[in-house]
Design a protein around this nucleic acid. Sequence first.
DNA 1: TTTCTACCTGGAGCGCGCTCCAGGTCAAGC
DNA 2: GCTTGACCTGGAGCGCGCTCCAGGTAGAAA
Lengths: 119, 119
Amino acid sequence: MTGYAPSEAARRSGFSLDTLRYYERIGLLSGVGRTSAGRRVFTDEDLGWLTLFRCLRDTGMPIAEMCRYAELARAGDHTTGQRRALLVRHAERVEEQMRLLQRQYDHLREKIDFYDTLG
Amino acid sequence: MTGYAPSEAARRSGFSLDTLRYYERIGLLSGVGRTSAGRRVFTDEDLGWLTLFRCLRDTGMPIAEMCRYAELARAGDHTTGQRRALLVRHAERVEEQMRLLQRQYDHLREKIDFYDTLG
DNA sequence: TTTCTACCTGGAGCGCGCTCCAGGTCAAGC
DNA sequence: GCTTGACCTGGAGCGCGCTCCAGGTAGAAA
C-alpha cells in the first residue's frame, strides 16, 4: 500500500490541499494516516474515495449527502443496499440534470443561430 | 403588449418574487414598468429576458456575465457581434460541462453496477 | 548552522446567489 | 369603515463550499 503526500494526493484527485483538509475535518474523509511528524499520508484507498467524491461533486451531489454515503460505507457491509439506493436516486437526478442541460443548450444554440442570421 | 403582475411573472419564469426584485436591483433586468401605485408590471419582452436568464443560469453562467450581456444589448445594435461571441464562448463551456457530466454519470452507473453484482 | 519548504492546526473570512424581514402602501371585498 | 392580501423598499442574513491566515514544526538542502 503506497503512501502519498498531501500535495501528491491533491494533484491526483484534483482537490486543493485546503479542500482535502476540509473534507477530513467534516468527517467526509476519515482515518487518513499520519507520519510521526503529524503529516498526512494518503493511501490508494483514500485516493479511491477522492475519485468517488470527485464524481459525486461533479454531478452535483451536496456534501451532506456524500457524508451520509461515507457513513453508510463505514457502518459495514449490511448497508450496501442503502448505498446503492442512494446512488440510484442520485443517478436519476443526474439524468434529469443532463436532459435540462441539453434542452437549454439547444436554446442557446438557437439564440446563436439567430445572431448568425443578422449577418 | 400585455402586462403581468409579479406573481404571474414569477410563475411563468420560474424565478421567485425575491429573485425578480434582486435581478432588477443589480441591474440585470431594467426598465420594468410600474403601476401608479408603484407595483411592477412585466411585459412579454421582460418575460423574454427572463427566459434567456433561465437558460443561461441553468447552463451555469455567472450572474456577472449575464449582466455584461444585458448591458451590451442595452448599448444597441452595434454590440451584436460581442453578444454572439459571449454566447459562443459560453456554449463551448457548456459542451465541456456536458462531456464531464456524461463521463461522471458513466462512472456512477459503473459503481451502481458493481453493487448489483454483490447480489 | 541557518534557511527553506512542505506541511500542521484552529479559526476566520469570502463569493455567490439568493432569501428573509420590518415596516409600509394601496385596492378590493365584506 | 375595516380587513385582507398582494405588493413595495432598504437592508440584513443565510447556506454552501470552500479558501485564507497566523503561528508553528519537522526534515532536507546549502
